[in-house]
Design a protein around this nucleic acid. Structure first.
Length: 424
RNA sequence: GGAGAGAUGGCCGAGUUGGCUGAAGGCGCUCGCCUGCUAAGCGAGUAUACGGCUAAUACCUGUAUCGAGGGUUCGAAUCCCUCUCUCUCCGCCA
């Protein structure tokens, strides 16, 4: 959520930013409604002032044994007016709030302007895509061939966009998750959290999934709750409605959760394999920082996510998303794209964002600066560290052998009980 | 699922015959004083949001906020209703 005062003070700046996010005219009624709101507030507060003073007066008079009927009647009428005006204020504030909740974050100055991913900027590459002396297969062929991924039986259980992992595949998924968590807690200083997989609508509003993206999520029937689409939601909301001390910042948190996404708008995309599933596993990184340090923390967080790909020996590149390609809550996002021989291309495996105070304002996460200034909104960051399913897919494709087997990356062997390769 | 208790400021904790309580007291924190040594003592200060004023996110001022919402009343942290959450006991259960 943007600061209403900022919009009021610099409407053209915000307009421009929103145009760069393909949302012209998002502010249309906002300024007018704001004006109405302030005018009504001035009126109603004036009457409330009268009521407060008068009812105190009544109290004093009554103590003297008087019955100030006339004054009491006046206050009664004032109360009526207050009720009506409050009603109007509520309606207008609800409208303003609706607008505010649907406006995305403003891109940071360093973000390239563009309408979609064609304006994204490649920042760096790591690793060399492997040269195969045979025709490499895609993971949706490798997995079933080795009988470690079963899409047909998954469909029997749950329909499209689900997978069943079996034997070495199941263990590989688990190994990857544990390797990520161990690395981030052991080497990068994150605190491990194991949160609920279902959260309230308030949490979803706090991180920006609601109200705009309700159709992307799985809602719990009969309850005001949702399956988490990413651990970013519970981790960031851990500190909702709290005031932190600057000396305790930054907070580094990591969590494994399953993630649940309806994928409503992606019919026909990535229908094969485990790239785009309704349920997938992910280890997430979340930071809560002061306003001054969030951008250097974003670089570090991105580096932490890169580190696990490096340790796995998976070639990747880092891409800075353009204004038109960024997520709703983000001010700046780096995507990590891993090399997938089956696609002969890089595929997104992590997305690292600085949301600045956008989520903090929605979720009311604040901190008391060490300098004793006024309380401020914290900055929140999140990044995949990284998606487990896509990592497994990348391992299958990058480590496949001519005989159909798949070698286990060195760092995962301890997690695989010493297994060297998955074979039929 | 049954029975009971409770939700107050950064924290703890007063306040329930409705009014002068934005809220005692304590802790913590900040500033100052004092003390010949990391302790103690003394004094002062210390909520947030929104509005007005303003160059100001500085003053000053108004309104709101004692879990949330609604009601009664001239006036509610204090009375009534609904909801949410927490705790204790019983039952059930991975």
């Amino acid at each position: 959520m943007l600061d209403a005062k900022l919009i009021r003070a610099n409407p053209q700046v915000v307009e421009t930013a929103l145009r760069n996010r393909n949302l012209p005219g998002a502010l249309d009624n906002f300024l007018e409604l704001e004006k109405q709101r302030r005018s009504l507030l001035a009126q109603v507060e004036e009457i409330k002032k009268f009521r407060n003073q008068s009812s105190q007066e009544v109290g004093k008079l009554k103590k003297q044994g008087l019955e100030p009927e006339e004054l009491m009647e006046k206050v009664r009428q004032a109360g009526q007016e207050i009720k009506e005006l409050d009603e109007q204020v509520n309606v207008i504030e609800a409208e303003i709030n609706k607008i505010l909740l649907n406006i995305p974050n403003i891109p940071h100055d360093s973000v390239p302007i563009g309408i979609d991913d064609t304006s994204n900027l490649e920042i760096r590459r790591w690793g060399e895509p492997r040269k195969f002396d045979f025709e490499p297969l895609a993971h949706w062929d490798i997995g079933p061939n080795l009988d470690i991924l079963d899409f047909e039986r998954a469909a029997k259980l749950s329909g499209a966009r689900f997978a069943v992992y079996k034997s070495g595949g199941a263990r590989l998924e688990r190994a990857v998750v544990n390797f990520f968590l161990d690395t981030h807690t052991g080497c990068h200083g994150y605190k491990e959290i194991f949160p609920p997989f279902m959260v309230t609508a308030d949490c979803m509003r706090g991180t920006g999934q609601l109200p705009k993206f309700a159709e992307d999520m799985f809602k719990i029937e009969g309850r005001d709750m949702y399956m988490v689409p990413t651990a970013e939601v519970p981790l960031t909301n851990l500190y909702r409605e709290e005031i932190l001390e600057e000396k305790d910042l930054p907070l580094y948190m990591t969590a494994y959760t399953a993630c649940f996404r309806a994928e409503a708008g992606s019919h026909g995309r990535d229908t094969r394999g485990i790239i785009r599933q309704h349920q997938f596993n992910k280890v997430e990184l979340v930071k809560i920082t002061s306003a001054e340090t969030s951008y250097e923390e974003l670089e570090k967080l991105t580096g932490d996510a890169e580190r696990v790909l490096q340790l796995l020996g998976l070639p990747y590149r880092v891409v800075l998303l353009s204004s038109g390609d960024m997520g709703f809550s983000s001010a700046k996002t780096y995507d990590l794209e891993v090399w997938m021989p089956g696609y002969n291309d890089y595929k997104e495996i992590s997305s690292c964002s600085n949301c600045e105070d956008f989520q903090a304002r929605r979720a009311n996460i604040r901190y008391r600066p060490a300098s004793k200034e006024k309380i401020r909104y914290a900055h929140t960051l999140n990044g995949s560290g990284v998606a487990a399913g896509r990592t497994v897919a990348a391992i299958l494709e990058n480590y496949q052998q001519a005989d159909g087997s798949v070698l286990i990356p060195e760092v995962l062997k301890p997690y695989m009980g010493g297994l060297e390769r998955i074979e039929k």
